[in-house]
Design a protein around this nucleic acid. Sequence first.
DNA 1: TGATGTCGGTAACATTGGTTACACAGGGTG
DNA 2: CACCCTGTGTAACCAATGTTACCGACATCA
Lengths: 210, 210
Amino acid sequence: MIQELKNSYGHLFEDVLINEILQVGTYKEVPAGFKMMEIGSYVKGMPLLVSGAIKVLREDKNGDELLLYYLEKGETCSMTMTCCIGQTKSEIRAIAETDTKLIMIPIEKMEIWTSKYKSWRNFVFESYHNRLNEMLHTLDSIAFDNMDERLLNYLKEKARINNDKTIRNTHQEIAYELHSSRVVISRLLKKLENMGNIELHRNYIEIISL
Amino acid sequence: MIQELKNSYGHLFEDVLINEILQVGTYKEVPAGFKMMEIGSYVKGMPLLVSGAIKVLREDKNGDELLLYYLEKGETCSMTMTCCIGQTKSEIRAIAETDTKLIMIPIEKMEIWTSKYKSWRNFVFESYHNRLNEMLHTLDSIAFDNMDERLLNYLKEKARINNDKTIRNTHQEIAYELHSSRVVISRLLKKLENMGNIELHRNYIEIISL
DNA sequence: TGATGTCGGTAACATTGGTTACACAGGGTG
DNA sequence: CACCCTGTGTAACCAATGTTACCGACATCA
């Protein structure tokens, strides 16, 4: 655990804080697809990602989903922090996109470390900053882009996050995350294939050039 | 200034902090329509709203706008904080919706007060919290709602913010803020009028019941 | 091998929202 | 008053996306 922590957070936190984290944090490994947080649930702790990626989703009245953004190594969930402070329920769902390693921090430490460590404070602010910007870009994409552009960005981002030129998802799954329908996604994917950007197969998509 | 500050922030900040704010803050009054922050500009200070409201807008590649949310009395601009810390350019435009009174805090104080005052820290976190939630709801509305629902919410919110059942805007202005077109907005407004929700007039709209 | 369930391709159609074009009304100005 | 500018109403049309329906390909499993 110590090596992984130092690897991801060593440049951010001073040694004293790293030691505190080692003492109170619990190390966890979760498999891809694991649901880490559900809408309406209360937050038990704050996650520090060590490796892997987590996708953060929003749900509408009908239970349909929308992908908001991914969390990666060295990041944490601002929504969680937000909940810790306000003691409110989660507004979002979080699911491991890949196999993921993380360290859970008890929420009491949030408040304490925030006054005690400048580096922690900066980390927390930085984290909010990043999240707000991610949200802005997600919003841009939904408000201003057509579905074909959104799909393209989705494929790019997915390939980057998974570090894999092969997208291992069905059209239906992609449709869920973009809050669209399977038929529409199939249609647009076929268009991308005809333009030579991707190759379609059953259960996976190969990216040629985007 | 002291009365106004205590009135809006007295319950949030301890007296010592209130005094510091009085020493370093500059009091400003801006008229409705005044542009307080432009996309791409750098941030000089952090605003504490004392009265009035500020609308926060996003712009797309074509220069078209989208209303994100309003800031009200007792709030501050998280985007600004975000910029202060990262020293980055503004991602948004901010325009006074009504005549507005505010106190500008030099950005250096951000860092100092954050370690010095617990109440300031809480205020800053609370502020991020609120902004993230506002963004979530804006995003919900754009991703999940049809234009007629968005328009309805827009009218409600506008009436609330201005504390006035009369919306003093042209259809064109409404269309800008919802990132739609005048014809579409006129169409939907007429539908609302036919259902007895509003009354249309030249240059203003009266809300009957929403 | 045949039954079954999942996945993807495709056509036809519906709906929403955006675009263009034009008419007309209100209000101010010369 | 005639003129003009701006705001609104409305029709006709278009583009993007969503919906329904159906078919065939593939994989699995009995």
